[in-house]
Design a protein around this nucleic acid. Structure first.
Lengths: 246, 246
DNA sequence: GAGTGGTCTAGACCACCAA
DNA sequence: TGGTGGTCTAGACCACTCT
């Protein structure tokens, strides 16, 4: 047997998916749903919470319960590029801001990923990718300290300079520094955002994040950099093209 | 200013992440939290719901509020294999069950993905991947009807036979049928599960699904099959190895 | 049977937003 | 200013699990 709030949630969900309540429209106000179903306020809110946690709706105080656009994908991230690239429809309202960029000592996890000793110098960079006014992707990156040093030496590009407006292509810089990035391994997972991520990316309830962990290596399997990408789940997708070995 | 339930949630979240309440343990019972914080029952439940929706805890009636294991990844899915493969620790408690396998007419979406006409015959297969007693991955697959026909003709393997216990490697069958799968394109996204997926995979609240859409093509860019993988977000990960073009 | 979380009620006050 | 959703209270009954 279904509980009351489950029945209400089922009915509203059905009307959202079949187009009775199209994206951008509002659900009936809570008082109306109370009258319709003859239940208490908290019961209606329970149903609404369930749908919000599925990512179907976003309640907004003073406005109403808004049906979300489904399948809104505005950011593509391609593994062959050192930074995610915006898709063709991204337009000009995209930008990248470097929040943090400095040298620090590698902790255990990073040391293992980069194949260096704990405490070795690495360059850590934290970037926010914007789509319009919203941050849609958090990029945390650690660059092998030796590689960063060679880049500075050979190209005068300082990886720890966060004021650079348009950062040069890191892979190109690595090539100029004599380390040719030849392969990445990426692990894609998903989870719910922590409160900090939720606030930074201004995420409504019910939206997970897509997490990608990347390690870039050169031809000698030396790790050049490692990155973690945390992307707003309803704004980003990862695309891969894979050759099948015969 | 924080609301009461947010303060409670923050405090509990902190104790979970710092190990005061380790994975597998239970949070203090609701009545105890009511006494501790001097609030109403629904306020405590609100805090608990928030943490449950972040995937941190799983309330179980009659038992308690259990702290979830974080980062439990038991299934690896490699794009170079026609089926996801279990990692080395998977053991023998893994299996695949074919729920559905039959010929049907391609709808618009599938026709477009496979590059066939709407209404053309395609083979649809639906499979459940088990880890232990739990379904952790739903695999929906559509095979180009012509390719499936050639496979039946050349190898006597019937793609619509769902009784096959250990289905042969589809890519090998395609090669024998003269269609050499040479490339896949995959798009990885994430979202919250719908109620059906949640029930099928016995998912607790707060766990998203990892969705992979794949198209396999031969050397002539002819689409051989397309698949959608819906994986329980806390049990699966996708790994990719990508060669970087110079 | 005792304790757990799950659901539900009937009120209340608040912050937010649009007209 | 009136309507929206957000939070909170103090009760109640239920299903479930363990001992």
């Amino acid at each position: 047997m279904w509980t009351k709030y489950e029945k209400i949630a089922r009915e509203l969900r059905e009307r959202i998916t079949n187009g009775t309540y199209p994206p951008g429209s509002t659900l009936p106000p809570i008082p109306e749903l109370i009258a319709t179903y003859g239940v208490a306020r908290e019961t209606v809110r329970n149903a609404i919470s369930a749908l919000a946690n599925e990512g179907l709706i976003t309640p907004k105080a003073g406005v109403g319960t808004i049906v979300r656009d489904t399948g809104v994908v505005t950011l593509h991230s391609k593994p062959t590029d050192p930074h995610p690239v915006w898709d063709s429809t991204a337009g000009t309202d995209s930008k990248t801001i470097t929040i943090e960029a400095n040298s620090e000592a590698a902790n255990m996890e990073i040391a293992e990923l980069l194949g260096v000793a704990i405490g070795d110098t690495v360059v850590k960079r934290l970037r926010h990718y914007y789509k319009g006014k919203d941050v849609v992707l958090l990029h945390e990156q650690w660059i092998n300290g030796g590689v960063a040093g060679l880049i500075l030496e050979r190209t005068s590009y300082d990886c720890t300079d966060k004021t650079t407006k348009q950062p040069s292509d890191l892979y190109s810089l690595m090539r100029e520094a004599g380390h040719i990035p030849s392969q990445t391994t990426e692990v894609v997972t998903t989870r719910m955002p922590d409160p900090e991520e939720k606030e930074t990316m201004n995420m409504p309830p019910g939206i997970p994040v897509l997490v990608t962990l990347r390690v870039t290596r050169d031809g000698q399997q030396k790790a050049l950099e490692t990155s973690s990408f945390v992307a707003c789940g309803d704004r980003a997708e990862q695309t891969y093209t894979v050759q099948i070995p015969t």
